[in-house]
Amino acid sequence: MTTSPDVQPGVAVTESRQTPAAPSGPAAPGGRPSRRDRAGNGLTPGWLPWLLQAPALVVLFGLLVYPLVRVAVLSFQDFGLRELVTGESSWVGLDNFTEVLTDPLLWKVALPNTAVFAAVNVFLTVAVGTAVALLLAKLGPWARGILTSAIMVAWAMPAVTGTYVWVYLFDARDGFVMQTLGSLGLVDPETTNWFTERLPFFAIATANVVHHGFPFVAVTILAGLMTVPKEMLEAAALDGAGAWRRFRYVTMPLLKPVFAVVTILSTIWDFKVFTQIYLMPGGSGTNREVLNLGTWSYITAISQNRYGLGAAIAVLLTLLLLVITAVYLRTLFKQEEL
């Protein structure tokens, strides 16, 4: 999804910070509401919180929860363009799900393309992001300023533009990469088209997604690194710990919640990746090998007008993500309250 990698860090950042602090009470000054709030105190009536959150809840229910229910309903119907215009619709029970679940495309193509792609991209994004964060932490203020600006620029480039640029770079006949490698004699531009094969296709998509996603990880982890007390690292250094050991045994445990959050958020974004695949050559349906759940659902619903079937695919993707959400919640909130 275009928006997600740009947006969600907000959650991650604060959330991650809270987790280590909150369980142990005193570390969270003022964070823990005192008892009298339970019924509201004299100055703040009990309905006040509801009044305050009402607008946000209305928007969330109206535009996220309710449509989600609608998707679920649609997935049990035969719903096409005609139904949309005439207003008729017919219930087909589990037919749409049967069709999706028995389609070899799901098991051989869409699901692996979604899950494996997400796994690889999450790993790379987090690894690259962490490495860049560690690098940034070591640089002097000037170099750090320049490099942060540069990665911000990478972050700022919209997914749409980014995808066009990466496609452009790897274009089979006159793309920059192809021409460079071709002039070095490493590939033969006369016989190679990277977009037709599954692996190179997703390798290019991976470069795109990692390029767009690592700045968020780098900035978040850098922010986390700033909070690691210098004394602890110095003490470890005095004990003779090298750079790797200090990272592994001091920094990592302290930043565990941060890593958990960036990993899980990246997982969610990379499962949902749509624009970056859809806009690549063959990504909008011609090359069946490169469909993922997101593009498959969109093409089925919008290009073929089979809204019911498209919704069924979307429901499967949502269920998959809800499982991940559950993991997310468990990781973060095992022992503490929200």
Binding site: Q8, L60, L68, V71, I268
Partner: peptide, 17 residues
Amino acid sequence: IMVLVVQMVPLEALVIP
């Protein structure tokens, strides 16, 4: 929890409704 779960929903899934 609702606020948290809601952001996990794939946005393309919501295009149609």
